[in-house]
Design a protein around this nucleic acid. Sequence first.
RNA 1: GCGCCUGUAGCUCAGUCGGAUAGAGCAACUGCCUUCUAAGCAGUGGGCCAGGGGUUCGAAUCCCUUCAGGCGCGCCA
Length: 545
Amino acid sequence: MERYAKEIVEKAVRSLGAGQVDIEFEVPREEFGDLATPVAMALSKLLRKAPRKVAEEIVGAIEEKEVFERIDIAGPGYINFAFSKKYLISLTKELISLKEKFIRRDTGKGMRVQVEFVSANPTGPLHLGHGRGAAVGAALSNLLEAAGYSVEREYYINDAGRQVKLLGLSVFAKYQQQLGLEYPFPEDGYRGAYVEDLAGKIVAGHGSRYSEMSFQEAQDFFTDFSYKEMLLEIEKDLKDFGIVFNTWQSERELYAKHEIEKAIDDLMLRGRTYDKDGALWFKATDFGDDKDRVIRKSDGELTYFASDIAYHRKKIEKGFAEIIDIWGADHHGYISRLKAVIQALGYGPEHLTVLLVQMVSLLRGGKPVQMSKRAGEFVTLREVMDEVGSDTAKFIFLTRRPDSHLEFDLEVAKEQSAENPVFYVQYANARINSIFKNAKEKGIDVSGLEGSDFSLLSAGEEMRILKKLLAYPRVFESAAVSHEPHRITFYLQELTGLFHPYYNKYRIVTDETELTRARLALCEGVRIVLKDGLGILGLTAPEKM
RNA sequence: GCGCCUGUAGCUCAGUCGGAUAGAGCAACUGCCUUCUAAGCAGUGGGCCAGGGGUUCGAAUCCCUUCAGGCGCGCCA
């Protein structure tokens, strides 16, 4: 509904000869109307006329008067629009018959986008911070896909570095110890209970077969076994959390397919590297990074950054129009060097978007829970899923801006469970479902509701719901372009915040068949939008609660 | 020391790229179930938008600065 209003106002402004102006709309407080624009105030300086005078001229130039019930000039120079009921009804009918097609404008036009998220090292189970990244990444992917982009959801597996080897060593040490042998546990080894479990599995499966070996001899087996087990667990956790990936990119594979050398050669050919002190450096400072970065150390080992270069080069080669990386905020220092890589490879820095998801501090009953993967102290995503439920956890993650710090109090999340906003939203869907069931039992025809007589909807609550429904495309669109799924979450709470009181005050299914059908149509609209929003957020839409 | 993020109701958080009287949930208190689901509804209270300067018709929002919290600054991964 905003799109059309915008065209109308744009036309009017143009006819005043004001040239190209970006027309902003906002949704004002109800008594002012449905849409408002401060454009006259912005123009007043340009045209050197009083804002209210400009507003009058704009209003005078508007031709499509029948769309609006009234157009007012108010305050310092706002133009407030109130749509005519007839226009609102025609749009609502479209919503009900066209469903998603009405909601979505094809902004993406099939452009390919990759969203990489979670990408936790397979050296331990996923913890709560990964859960936040997963919820946000999945929701963003869904959002972009719905907006017409072709989205690839990728998980990058760090299966090549020192960390997985350290996991292997940790398990090896526990294995020896479980067999009653002396073996020093590595200083900075992984200490979680899952390391014992991995060792136990090897003892159970292979007995003392590796007890006489040095780690040197056994490391391939221990490392591979351990990280692959962890990866299986991670995959299962994500699956149970309702997160789907399309591709899993292994770091080892980059090595195996010589992608690393190719990438380094590429940068060398482009003249973006140099040798110093026996090491190979990338000239990150050419593209605004603070310092140059080492690709190959003087001992010949490649750095982790070398893999990152190859990995991002591969993303580019796959031909994505935009690459989105979702990282924990503790990695923010790496943005500039990777943007430098993108540019060194000949692309604009905007080709890569890094979305930072801020840290999650975990509390239990107001007291902080220390999180350290190495020390084995952490609360896993699995535990949180079991304790508070996936939908609740996701909802908590998705009611915050990704870049705001999050305090996740397990006790509060559990206590609130009964009163949790997620249920409030889902409950509306269940309720509507129940209403339809009731209507069918009473023998009411619930098909072809877009053809019902909407003019029978006269209550203020009904018009308010209707307008809220029609505002959804705007919310959806803005959430997609700004990469902020949480806007959907808040919107759904507002929508259901209108629906529940309405339900409570009015009876939907009555003896008056036509009125019933009109109200059912309104419910149908709510249901369409609710399901769409919940789906994007990756939440279930239960039919019964 | 430098860089990034954050500071809004008792708590957890929104605030539509500068707009009208700053919002929601939770917590607290008072009422509502013979009627489509009470995971609901009606109502009450609650704020120097961390502090201070500036920019302009107009600032929670932009700039400067101070304070507080978090994170990051390796030939680590």
